[in-house]
Nucleic acid binder design. Structure first.
Lengths: 151, 151
DNA sequence: TATTGTTATACTCTATAACTATA
DNA sequence: TATAGTTATAGAGTATAACAATA
C-alpha cells in the first residue's frame, strides 16, 4: 500500500478533475456570481484579508480581472476595500458580514445538491469520497499561487 | 461504516467541489479551448456521437452556446457534423481523429500537472484519492442531464 | 526602477429571444 | 403545434497593454 501511483492512476485522477468541472458548473445556477468571484470570497473567509494582487495570484487570474471581480463585490457590499496603512500603493480586501451570509447561503444550496447526488451512491462509495476529502483539499493546497508575471 | 453521511461531511464535499474549480483552471493554460469545449469533446469520445441538443443538455449549457462551441471545433477539424438520416431537423456530432489526438495531448499535459501535485502528498493521501476516483466518477454520472427548458 | 493597482480595449463564453426548417 | 438547430444581440469574464501613484 506504499507503492507510488501508476501512470494510469494519475491519468484517471486527471480525467476525473476534468469531469468534476462539469459537476461544479451544474451546482452553480446561472445568474449567480461566477465561480471565480465565489472562490475569491471563500478565500477571503478562509485565509483572511488579502491584497488584490495576492488574491489574483491565488485564484490564478490577472490583476485587472480581479480588480473587476472585487469591484462588483464591493458595489454589492460583499467585500470592503481599504488602503493598506503600511503601503500607500496597496489595498486590503476583506469580506463583510453580508459577504459571509452570501457565502453561507450559497454553501447551503450547494450542499443540498451534493446531498442528492451522494444519496444516489451506495454506502461504500459515499464513504470513500468522504474519506478522500481531506486528501483532495491538500491536493488543492499544493497548487502554487501564480506569480504575477510568470517569472 | 454503514452510517449515512453527516451534514458536516456533505458540506465538506460541497466546499471541496468549489475549490476544485480553482485547481481545474490552473491546469488549463489560457489560450486553449475552454473547459466546456473540452468537456464536450471528452463526452463525444466517451459516449459516442450525439445530437447538439443532447450535448448541450449533458454539459449544462444552452443550445446556442453549444452551437457556437461545436462551430469552433468544426472549423478546426476536431469534430464533424452530419445530418441525422432519421430526422431532417437534427444533426449528429462526432469526434474526428484530430479531435481524439487533441484530447490525448491535453490529457497528457494535465496528467503531468496532476502528477506534480500528487507528488507533494504523502502516500496515504495519494492512495485515498486514487481509491475514491471510481466513486467520484459515479457521483458525476449521477448528475442528470439538464432538460432543455427546465420543465 | 520596481511594484500596486486601475483604465482602455478586445475576444471568448454564455444567455435569451427571434427565426427557419422539419416532424 | 412542437422540436432541432441557427442567428442576432447583449452581458459577464478574461487577457494584454498602457497608465498613475507609491516604494
Amino acid at each position: 500500500m506504499t507503492r507510488a501511483p501508476e501512470p494510469e492512476e494519475i491519468s484517471d485522477v486527471a480525467g476525473l478533475l476534468e469531469e468534476l468541472f462539469r459537476l461544479s458548473r451544474r451546482l452553480t445556477p446561472p445568474g449567480n456570481y461566477s465561480l471565480t468571484v465565489y472562490s475569491a470570497l471563500a478565500s477571503l473567509k478562509r485565509h483572511g484579508d488579502a491584497r488584490l494582487t495576492a488574491l489574483a495570484a491565488h485564484e490564478g487570474v490577472s490583476q485587472p480581472s480581479m480588480t473587476q471581480a472585487v469591484g462588483r463585490l464591493k458595489r454589492e457590499g460583499l467585500v470592503q476595500q481599504v488602503p493598506d496603512p503600511s503601503d500607500g500603493r496597496a489595498v486590503l480586501i476583506s469580506i463583510t458580514d453580508t459577504g459571509l451570509a452570501a457565502l453561507a447561503a450559497r454553501s447551503q444550496r450547494r450542499s443540498e445538491g451534493v446531498a442528492e447526488l451522494l444519496a444516489a451512491l451506495d454506502a461504500t462509495d459515499q464513504h470513500s469520497i468522504i474519506a478522500a476529502t481531506g486528501a483532495l483539499r491538500r491536493l488543492i493546497d499544493a497548487v502554487p499561487d501564480q506569480r504575477p508575471d510568470g517569472k
